[in-house]
Structure formats: C-alpha cells, structure tokens
C-alpha cells in the first residue's frame, strides 16, 4: 500500500517548481507596475476632478472591484483577440492576434485589476502630502507635473510603501490564476506535477511553502527600503570648508 502522505515528496517537488518562480515574479512585478502607473493616473484624474475622465475612471474602478479576477482574466483572454479581429475586419488592419502570448494577457488583466485597487490608496497617499508643499512648489514656479515628481510622489511613496508591498503580495497571489491565459507559472507547473504522480496534496503543500517564503522575503525587503527612505533622526551640522568663521554666524 502506498503512503497516505509522502512527506519527502513535498520537498523534492520544490526544485522543479522553483524553475517557474521567475515567471511568477515577472508576472507579478509587471502587473504591479502597470497597476501603479495606471493607478496613479486614475488617482490624478480623481484629485484634479477632470470631467468625463473622472466618470470613466469611477466606472472602471467599480467594474473591476465588482468582479472576480478569474472572470477578468477570461474576459481579457477572450475579449482582446475578439476585439482585434473586429478591428481587422472593420478597418482592414492586420493585427496578429495569434502571436500575442498568453503572458501578455495575464499581465494586462492582472495589471488592470491591481490599478483599480491601488488607485484609492495612491490617491490618499498623494492627498496625505500637505497642500502647503504643493503651494510652495507652485509659488516657486514649478508645474504640477514637476511638483508631483519632485515633491509629492517621493513623500507619498513613504506613506504608501506598506500598501505597495501589500499590492505586490496580492499581485503574486493573483498570478496563480494566470493558467487561464495558458501561462505556465508556479501553480500551473504544480498542477502538471500533480497530474503526473497523483500527489496533488503534496505538490500544493510545496506551493504553499514557496509562496509563503516569497512573501516573507518581500516583507523583509520592504522593511529595508522603508528604513532607507526614512528621514534620519539626527544629522550633523553643516561645516563649510572655506570659511569656518561664517558658520552659524547669526544675524
């Protein structure tokens, strides 16, 4: 009789699975990147109250939040090719639908999903930067874009960092659904192994361990970044090389 639970198998699976970790990470990072950029755009639209775009953005966010990721992945996977074919028929373009890899669909769908969820946190992070700093930047003659890039986003970043970390973690978990777009990543490979040796339980245990470890590593990296970004508690007085006499010479 075979063993009920093959403990060793849990660990022997890991090296083979690890080969697919890069795909999972790539998916997650790209999706998060799209999510942050698009989320920033949505946040700015909402903050600046740009008419029409504001309603469109709210509509988009509402749809994404109101539907499961799995459904969104299927809709993108089937919808984008249909849309391309429609364009081809209608306008005689020759978009090569078949050559788009499943990976691209998965990144797109996961990125759109993450943007809707990060938009609100990006907005509140941007809003958390005092209005005074924006006014000071404007008063110096900086454009909104310059103020955003130089003053507001760097400070908002530190506020949003924990949330950005969470969105990366949930993005990684989201990639486990990428098989819907025919992408073989960690989980998909796990299923393949399971199908080969019928040790599904063991392989899912291996997957759980890997995802969990990855999450722990990300959390640690985040802590380091947070420490790097923090304003130092104390700094030394500035000493001018040339004329020490002038130093600290008040009025």
């Amino acid at each position: 009789m075979t063993k009920l639970f093959d403990f060793k198998q849990v660990f022997t699976n890991i090296p083979e699975l690890m080969e697919y970790l890069p795909i999972t990470l790539e998916l997650a990072l790209l999706a998060m990147l799209i999510g942050l950029v698009l989320g920033l755009l949505l946040a700015i639209i909402k903050i600046k109250e740009i008419p029409v775009l504001k309603q469109l953005a709210a509509f988009f966010v509402s749809i994404i939040r109101g539907t499961p990721v799995l459904v969104q992945l299927y809709i993108v996977y089937f919808g984008v090719p249909m849309f391309c074919k429609y364009l081809n028929q209608r306008f005689g373009t020759s978009l090569a639908v078949a050559s788009i890899p499943g990976f691209a669909y998965a990144v797109l769908a996961l990125g759109l999903n993450s943007s809707a969820f990060s938009a609100e946190m990006i907005r509140s992070a941007l809003m958390s930067v005092g209005k005074g700093q924006l006014e000071a930047a404007n008063a110096l003659g900086m454009t909104y874009g310059q103020a955003l890039r130089r003053i507001i986003i760097p400070e908002a970043m530190t506020v949003a960092l924990p949330t950005i970390g969470n969105s990366l973690i949930s993005s990684i978990k989201g990639t486990s659904l990428a098989f819907t777009c025919a992408v073989v990543e960690l989980t998909a490979q796990g299923k393949i192994i399971g199908g080969r040796n019928y040790r599904y339980f063991e392989v899912y245990c291996s997957l759980a361990i890997i995802y969990w470890l990855v999450t722990i590593v990300i959390e640690q990296i985040l802590k380091i970044v947070e420490r790097k970004l923090a304003i130092p508690e104390q700094v030394e007085n500035f000493a001018e090389q040339q004329d020490e006499a002038q130093m600290g010479d008040g009025i």
Binding site: G132, Q133, E135, A136, A139, I231
Partner: peptide
Amino acid sequence: TGMVFQQFNLFER
C-alpha cells in the same frame, strides 16, 4: 514673485 507662507511649507523630505 517669491512667497513666504504662514506655515513655512518647506518640503518635508
């Protein structure tokens, strides 16, 4: 024009 605000409004970071 240069502006000096009541609340200073220095760039925090």
